[in-house]
């Protein structure tokens, strides 16, 4: 579930408001707010579209575990999904090249050894 929006990093571009498939964020006069966290489907896609790396989604669908995280737990993880997906400024870095094509080979390896 969406856990935090880093108010210092946020540039108020409102991409999260537009791209969240669950309409979790709300535009305001300043930076957007996490208006409907209970509607979050934990798909992490808002992180991909946040070029300011201001958003953090905890993988648990219910907020129990995320509630124990502190900013010092979260800050080092901000932006990792966008980076590892090779989006935007990471697109030329071969370390993060999209190797999704390997998936069928992995399935084959699991099946046939």
């Amino acid at each position: 579930m969406i856990t935090s929006l880093d108010t210092e990093r946020c540039t108020a571009c409102n991409q999260c408001v537009a791209t969240c498939p669950r309409d979790v964020f709300e535009k305001t006069e300043h930076i957007p707010t996490i208006a409907r966290p209970q509607d979050c489907q934990t798909c992490f896609l808002c992180e991909l579209y946040c070029t300011a790396d201001a958003l953090f989604v905890h993988p648990e669908a219910e907020p129990a575990m995320a509630a124990r995280l502190t900013p010092s737990d979260i800050t080092p993880l901000l932006g990792e999904y966008r980076r590892e997906s090779g989006w935007d400024e990471w697109s030329e870095n071969p370390r993060y090249a999209n190797q999704h094509w390997r998936m069928e080979d992995v399935f084959r390896l699991a099946r046939d050894g």
């Binding site: 992490f44 575990m65 993880l77 590892e84 999209n98 998936m103």
Partner: peptide
Amino acid sequence: IVRRQLPQISPNVTLTFRRL
């Protein structure tokens, strides 16, 4: 080899375990 390749195949899988 699959463990090493995983982040570039499915980054949302590796980040899930890291965050857990």
